[in-house]
Amino acid sequence: MVMEIVCPAGTPAALRAAVKAGAHTVYCGFNDETNARNFPGLNFDRQEMREGIAFAHAHGSKVLIAINTFPRAGNEAIWHRAVADAESCHVDAVILADLGLLDYAARNHPGLRRHLSVQAAAANADVINFYARTFDVKRVVLPRVLSVQEIAAINAETEVETEVFVFGGLCVMAEGRCSLSSYATGLSPNMNGVCSPASHVEYREDKGVLDARLGGYTIHRVGQNEPAPYPTLCKGCFGASDKRGHLFEDPVSLNAEQLIPQLQKAGVTALKIEGRQRSRSYVTQVVRNFRTAVDALEAGRPMPEGMLARLSEGQAMTTGAYKKTWR
């Protein structure tokens, strides 16, 4: 079967663009703290979601709604409503991370298909099978800490479909288990749906040197004419003992396009593209390229090469943990 391309959409326009470009599936979120890309001006209100899903279905594409932050104590009703609204919008599945919310959805919306978000960081077959048995989870989005071999081993031991990130932002920490951002800025992916938020970023120029600060901490420094990367915490430049550099990860983004055949052999069902914050034209290009790649693979044609390099916006690319270089 052809591998499923799961594409992000931060706006109704991006959703339509993705569908037209050939995305098998589009994922999006409601415009509130229930999703892990809770950025100003992004995401869908209920009406937009209903219309977006109807549009996608009319064109043969599926839609997934990410409700993948961790509900705030005392305020779970907001998340419960999101799950109920997702079902009434006729979404194809919801992507959940929180145990309590999975339990709620399984009990109150048994007919609504559930995927396990990457934010749950389910990194082995035992725990994935446990989620499947307990909450009838049909698909798991794997954390970006696994190699292709490890992914293959997981697929050999589970009936649950696996979805892996192939392009865009790269978390080097186990997702959903990182509070670096809230330590430095007060806002976190788990609680607020944001990481290293732009509201806490500051650029300062002095004598031809440009400092990028996050929450008052300088974590990038470049010369005047060098590109200044966005100061995401885990990709910052730090000092330790007598060394200085990108101690956790370089300012890179993920591109696993060349690993698609291996991922297919490893039993992966779906390829996920990160970036609900991205523009319509970006989404169109990325989807077209990945669609071309999986169609080529299915037809037994060679994979097109280097098709996405120009979309990296000057950033270096990496295959992350997939090629086992971390181990």
Binding site: F70, P71, R72, A73, G74, N75, E76, A97, D98, L99, G100, L101, D103, Y104, G176, R177, N190, M191
Partner: peptide, 11 residues
């Protein structure tokens, strides 16, 4: 991750 009552009740 235990952030809310739902998770606590389930655990």
């Amino acid at each position: 991750n235990v952030y809310n009552e739902g998770t606590l009740v389930w655990l």
